[in-house]
C-alpha cells in the first residue's frame, strides 16, 4: 500500500531557530502514528506544516502522492486533512453544534452546502465523541475535557482522510484518556489515518501502531512503540544522560 501522507526532508526555521530539521516519515492508510518528544521538540510545528497554517522553509509534503507544500490551509482541509489544536480554539460565540457544523459545511470536497444537513452530521459526530448532551451549549462554556472532545468532533465533521491530533489527551484524567483512546481507535476503524502527538507516553504506547520521536526538531527514532521506547537515544532525550 502506498502512503497517504509523505513528509520529505521538511525543515522549518523561525529566524535563527530550527524548529523542525530535515524530518522525513510517512503515514500509511488506516495507521495510527504516534509522535512524541520533549517540550519544544517541534511537534506542533510539524502539525502546522502538514495542515498548512505554516509554510515549510524547505522540503516537500505529499498527500496521496501529490505535493501540498504550497497549498493554502483551506485547500488541504478540502482534500481531507483535519486537525485539532493543542491550545483549544473553538468558535467561542457559537453553540457546540454549530462549531461542528462548520466542519460539515466546509471540510473534505468542499463539504455540505445545506445547513440543516450539516447540523445533522454535526449532531452525529458529537454523539460519537460523547458530547451529545452539550449540543446547545455555547462552546466557551465547555470545560477543558469537553473542549478536547469538541476539537475532535470539529475535525471529524470534515470527513477527513487524515486526522492530525495535537495533544488531545493533555490535561485529561485517566478515565477520560481511555475514552479518547477509544474514540481514536474507532476513527481508525472507519478507515481514517491518524497522526497523534502526545505527551502521555503510556497512552500513546498502547494506541500507536508506530512511534516516532522528535528531539530538537530532529527525528531520532521511528519504529514499533516497544522498540522505540527502549531506544537509548530516546531515553536520553527524555531523562537526560546521567540517569539513563
Amino acid at each position: 500500500m502506498s502512503a497517504i501522507l509523505e513528509i520529505k526532508n521538511v525543515t522549518r526555521r523561525f529566524s535563527g531557530l530550527v524548529a523542525v530539521n530535515d524530518v522525513s516519515f510517512d503515514l500509511q492508510p488506516k495507521e495510527i502514528l504516534g509522535i512524541i518528544g520533549p517540550n519544544g521538540a517541534g511537534k506542533t510545528t510539524l502539525i502546522s506544516l502538514i495542515s498548512g497554517t505554516l509554510p515549510p522553509s524547505s522540503g516537500d509534503i505529499l498527500f496521496e502522492g501529490k505535493s501540498i507544500a504550497n497549498m493554502p490551509a483551506y485547500q488541504r482541509a478540502r482534500l481531507g486533512i483535519g486537525r485539532t489544536f493543542q491550545i483549544m480554539r473553538p468558535f467561542p460565540g457559537l453553540s457546540v453544534l454549530d462549531n461542528v457544523a462548520v466542519g460539515a459545511l466546509f471540510g473534505r470536497g468542499g463539504g455540505n452546502a445545506e445547513l440543516a444537513r450539516a447540523r445533522e452530521l454535526a449532531r452525529a459526530q458529537l454523539d460519537f465523541v460523547g458530547l451529545g448532551k452539550n449540543v446547545d451549549q455555547r462552546a466557551d462554556e465547555l470545560g477543558g475535557p469537553g473542549r478536547k472532545r469538541l476539537e475532535l468532533a470539529k475535525a471529524l465533521a470534515m470527513q477527513p482522510k487524515v486526522l492530525l491530533c495535537d495533544e488531545v489527551m493533555a490535561g485529561l484524567n485517566l478515565v477520560e484518556i481511555d475514552e479518547v483512546i477509544d474514540v481514536i481507535r474507532k476513527v481508525r476503524n472507519e478507515g481514517i489515518s491518524v497522526l497523534v502527538i502526545e505527551h502521555v507516553i503510556k497512552a500513546i504506547k498502547s494506541l500507536s501502531d508506530r512511534l516516532l520521536v522528535l528531539h530538537h526538531g530532529e527525528k531520532i527514532a521511528d519504529g514499533d512503540p516497544e522498540t522505540v521506547l527502549a531506544n537509548q537515544a530516546v531515553v536520553e532525550a527524555y531523562l537526560g544522560k546521567r540517569r539513563a
Binding site: S51, G52, A73, F85, P90, F91, L105, L115, A118, M158
Partner: peptide
C-alpha cells in the same frame, strides 16, 4: 454556508482556514 464561514472567520480565523 457563506455566513457560517464569515462567523467562523470572526471567531477564529486560523481555525476556520483549517476547517476548509
Amino acid at each position: 454556508r457563506f455566513g457560517f464561514g464569515l462567523i467562523a472567520i470572526r471567531e477564529n480565523e486560523e481555525g476556520a482556514a483549517v476547517m476548509g
